[in-house]
Each structure stands twice: as structure tokens, then as C-alpha cells.
Design a protein around this nucleic acid. Structure first.
Length: 512
RNA sequence: GACCCUAUCGUCUAGUGGUCUAGGACACCGCCCUUUCACGGCGGUAACCCGGGUUCGAACCCCGGUAGGGUCGCCA
């Protein structure tokens, strides 16, 4: 073990080539925030001839999926953010998927335990919850109290022998101040008393993010960590680990966080966050990337329209502004319009719109749904328009049936939407089952459940077969339209959301 | 609540002590172009969070307040 660490340390002493990374967790839709970090990481590395690495952080075995990983890869590539090394692009520092590096983490954790920098902890979740509640009550920082640190070696050996469930935690100094160096913010002092004895290895033997990120960034020779502001508070943990291992700390660059129009951290409840949604809406990848580039950063000459290539050329990290920007879809639309008008002649426009949706392949998915409803071709356009549209123009009266209230309708749509978010396979049969379940859950006839959904999806009370249509539209656009319909009905307030969520959870529990 | 970050038009931003009666862009409003709409052109409304310092001089530096955000998980 010690040998592994020493050898790696030598590698670092070579002349410095800038290496940055983006490290998404494959637990959901590809997020624009991931693309944002990837963009800045790529620009910074490539400007100086360095390398940009993609690493998959799938240490959460519960939530990580192969589909999500693929979707993230596809979306970043769609945007034109390609990487020099990654799970599908072997390099000298692979593998680039953390689930394939578990032995490495185990060795490193073991090393920390041997050196006395980490310890086994046998505390139960219940005890920890109690402890936190108590600390909360006393207005203290919630933090592990160090109980298991006092266990003797024999006691630990005995418990391990007995197969007791345990985690491994890092030790943190009792007092003192950690000075976090941030390239954009300067020195940030954080008291060690504020820092928790972070779990490094979970009871399933997998490392936590904090351990894996440090080990991997080091072994992959990452020189600059560009990440969101949300990580500032955990920087001391990482610095401590670098210190325990005897490694040099990479430079930290914390970017501002993208925000919803209400200024909270960008979230799918309030704003479309999936890159695929923007793709499905017909935004050009160049424009989306350009837009992300103008959030928190500007060209030296003030030009707002610029390509990735040009951004790399003119990139200057000092030009990043620290106020967290609001993701403004209106401005993105305007920018996309400029790209469309200024960069695409008629030929290229035709090419791009065919690539997007107007092609034989998409048409062939739709034809089976409309053929028997059509007598002459001239009827086709109206019938299929909604497949290529964005969000339909809706009114409350269109959505709410006579025998139902606005809140009932909201509930139907919201429950279905939550089910959709949890849906593993997106096809007509699964969707069919989904709505049957919603009808049972809410004690309604399926036709009553479906009525507002027809309108939400197609903009009209009638449409080609609903579930097939949803299958063609895909999860991103379907969910966006459901969400849009809910918003047209006045949206779900925080309070209502809480109430509905409670009801939904209890129904879900009884369902399984 | 504790800790951390941030603070220029509604929004994205320029501005790094004097050239700022604060510039550009989106959105909004008006006018022009136009059979309509859009595009385009022209014009308009609109901001340095507050209070103290430092300085001959502060949007820019320092301190305090306020506000917003983030973090406090065997998620990342």
C-alpha cells in the first residue's frame, strides 16, 4: 500500500500539465449544472493544452444506473463537450468509473486506519440521529461525537470478528482553523470544530464521495478542481485527507451556483434542468453551451455570441464573476435565435431540423399512431403537430373537468408526474400500468384520470393514443408538459407539495 | 440555528480609485421598416443594498449591518 502511494507521488513531480475533470453521479437526468462545470473545466484545461477528464462517481450503488450514465455521456457529447479520458475513452489513469476502483479505495482507507488517521465506527443510525437531534437542540454544529474513537484495538478487533456492521470515519483535529485557498475568493478560514468526522467507507464497503474524490483526483493527476460553490464547506475534509496521505493539494476553483428565477439553487421543481429537455425543445447545442458560457463569465470584448472554440481561446478564469446567476430561459431563446439566423443558411437549417425531428425515422414512429385516423394526407399535419411542439398553450378551463376541482386535477397530474420520475423503462405498457395505478390510488376511473393528461400532453382533449404518444415524446418532454399543466393550474406551493407528498408516500408504501 | 459564500437596471453582465451625469444584452414600452407577424433599425423606462471608515477623490479598498444563497447524510 505504502508503495502505491509513494510511486504515485513521484508522478506528480513531472512538469505540470493542467488536468481538470468533471465527475457526475449517474443518479438521474443529465443536469445543466454538470454541463456548466464541464464547460469551464474544459475551457480551462484546453486553453493551456491540458487535458479534461470525465469520471463517473457511482459509489452510491443504490441510486446509480447505467442508463443515467449513458444519458450523461450522450448529453455532454451532444453539447460538444468531449473529454480526453473517460469511461469510454481509455487513458493512463483508468478505470474512470469509481465502481471499478473499489480495491483502490479500500487500500487507501486501510492505509489511513493503519496510520491512525481514520477509525472504525460501529454506531447505529438511530444513535447518530439522536445525537444530532440533541446537538441541534443545544444549537451546536451537528458532528459525530467521537464515541468509537475511544474503542481499544482489541474491542475493535472483537467487533469486526463478530461481523458487526461498521463504517470508517476520518479523524479531524479538535481545534484550529483550516485555510481553504480558492483561486477566485482567496483565503477562506473554516474552523476544524465545524467539520464532521466524515464517513470514508460506508457499511457496504463502498467509499463515500469524499474519500473517492480525493484518491481519484490525486491518482488521475488532477491539478485544478473546478466545482460548484456548494463544495466550499467540505474542502477542509479533502485538504485533511491530502495531508494524511502526504499529497499536494490541487488548486480549488469554486464556481457560483446556477439559480432558479426565485434565486434558489437550480432545481427541476422550478426550472427544466435536464439537458435532454433543451435538446428535445429544439435548442441548438452551440447556443446552450454559449448561454452557459455567458453565465458568470464574459468575453473580454463583451460579445455575447461565441463558440466553444472561441471561448477556449479567450478564456480567462479571472473573468468569472461570483454572483450566482439566474438561468433565464428567455435569454437562452434569444441567443438560440441568433445562432439559427446567423449561422445556419437554408441548407444547414434543413439539415439540422432533420437531425432534430423532421426525419423519416421519427415519422415512422408516429405513422402507426395516426394511420387509421387519417383519410387524406392533409389531415396529418394538425394531428401530429404536438409531437414536434414545445409546451402547449393551455388554459385552466381546458384542464379541469366539470366534476373536478383545480386541486383534484393538480393532484392527478402531480402523482402521475412523480410516478413518471420513478419509471425505470419508458414505454407504452409501463405508462399504461402507471396510469392504472394512479387511478386505483386516487380511487378514480381511469378515464377521469386521463382527461387532464390528454390536454396536458397534446394541448387538446383528443390526441393519438396517449401512452404511445408519450412514448414517442420521451420522458423529458412528457414530464415537462405535465409540469407545465400543473403550473398553468397555479403550480404546487411549498405547503401543498408537502401535503401531496405525504399522501403520495403513504399510498406508495401501501402499494408495495 | 451554526458556519461559509455572495451583493451594479426585473434578468445576464461591463466596470479592478478619478475618463461613471455607470456601458452593453435579454425582457418591457414607443417609433421606423413591413400586406400581417417575426427579423432588423432607432429611441425610452430601469441599477452601484444600507451605514461607517481609508483617500484630495470610491461602484471599485477596509469594517459593521442587511438581504439572498449554500452547507450542516453511510447522496454526490
Amino acid at each position: 500500500m505504502a508503495r502505491v502511494i509513494r510511486r504515485s507521488k513521484k508522478l506528480q513531480s513531472h512538469p505540470m500539465i493542467v488536468r481538470t475533470r468533471v465527475a457526475p453521479s449517474p443518479t438521474g437526468d443529465p443536469h445543466v449544472g454538470t454541463a456548466y462545470m464541464a464547460l469551464f473545466s474544459l475551457c480551462f484545461a484546453h486553453q493551456s493544452g491540458g487535458q479534461f477528464v470525465l469520471r463517473i462517481e457511482d459509489t452510491d450503488a443504490e441510486r446509480s444506473t447505467a442508463e443515467s450514465e449513458q444519458s450523461i455521456l450522450d448529453s455532454l457529447r451532444w453539447l460538444g463537450l468531449d473529454w480526453d479520458e473517460g469511461p469510454d475513452k481509455p487513458g493512463p489513469h483508468g478505470p474512470y468509473r469509481q465502481s471499478e476502483r473499489l480495491d483502490i479505495y479500500r487500500e487507501h482507507v486501510e492505509h489511513l486506519v493503519e496510520q491512525g488517521h481514520a477509525f472504525h465506527c460501529f454506531c447505529t443510525a438511530g444513535r447518530l440521529a439522536e445525537m444530532r437531534a440533541e446537538q441541534m437542540k443545544n444549537k451546536q454544529t451537528t458532528r459525530y461525537d467521537g464515541l468509537c474513537m475511544s474503542l481499544s484495538n482489541d474491542e475493535v478487533a472483537q467487533k469486526l470478528e463478530a461481523g458487526e456492521e461498521h463504517v470508517i470515519r476520518m479523524k479531524v483535529p479538535e481545534e484550529g482553523t483550516c485555510l481553504v485557498q480558492d483561486r477566485l475568493r482567496g483565503e477562506i478560514p473554516i474552523e476544524y470544530s465545524q467539520i464532521d468526522m466524515q464517513v470514508l467507507q460506508k457499511s457496504d464497503g463502498n467509499p463515500t464521495y469524499h474519500l473517492a474524490v480525493v484518491v481519484d483526483d490525486y491518482l488521475m493527476e488532477i491539478t485544478h478542481i473546478i466545482r460548484g460553490e456548494e463544495w466550499i464547506n467540505s474542502a477542509p475534509k479533502h485538504m485533511l485527507l491530502y495531508d494524511y496521505f502526504g499529497w499536494d493539494m490541487p488548486e480549488l476553483i469554486h464556481m457560483p451556483l446556477l439559480r432558479n428565477p426565485d434565486k434558489s439553487k437550480l432545481s427541476k421543481r422550478k426550472n427544466p434542468t435536464s439537458i435532454r429537455f433543451y435538446e428535445r425543445m429544439g435548442f441548438l447545442p452551440e447556443a446552450v453551451l454559449n448561454y452557459l458560457g455567458m453565465l458568470g463569465w464574459s468575453m473580454p470584448d463583451g460579445e455575447e455570441k461565441f463558440s466553444l472554440e472561441s471561448m477556449i481561446e479567450h478564456f480567462n478564469i479571472e473573468r468569472i464573476s461570483l454572483g450566482a446567476p439566474v438561468f433565464d430561459v428567455d435569454k437562452l431563446k434569444w441567443l438560440n435565435g441568433r445562432w439559427l439566423r446567423e449561422e445556419l443558411d437554408d441548407d444547414r437549417f434543413a439539415d439540422r431540423i432533420s437531425e432534430w425531428a423532421y426525419n423519416r425515422e421519427s415519422l415512422k414512429r408516429i405513422i402507426p399512431l395516426i394511420k387509421e385516423r387519417v383519410d387524406v394526407f392533409s389531415e396529418v399535419s394538425d394531428m401530429i403537430a404536438f409531437f414536434a411542439s414545445g409546451l402547449p398553450a393551455l388554459e385552466e378551463v381546458d384542464l379541469v373537468a366539470k366534476n373536478q376541482s383545480v386541486d383534484d386535477t393538480k393532484k392527478i397530474l402531480q402523482f402521475a408526474l412523480w410516478d413518471m420520475e420513478a419509471l425505470a423503462t419508458w414505454d407504452r405498457d409501463q405508462l399504461n400500468t402507471l396510469f392504472e395505478n394512479v387511478a386505483v390510488d386516487l380511487d378514480l376511473k381511469i378515464r377521469d384520470v386521463l382527461a387532464p393528461v390528454f390536454v396536458a400532453i397534446s394541448g387538446k382533449p383528443v390526441s393519438p393514443p396517449l401512452f404511445d404518444s408519450m412514448a414517442v415524446l420521451g420522458p423529458d418532454m412528457t414530464r415537462a408538459r405535465m409540469k407545465h399543466a400543473i403550473d398553468v393550474l397555479g403550480g404546487v406551493s411549498k405547503k401543498l407539495n408537502k401535503k401531496l407528498e405525504k399522501e403520495y408516500q403513504s399510498i406508495r408504501r401501501s402499494r408495495t
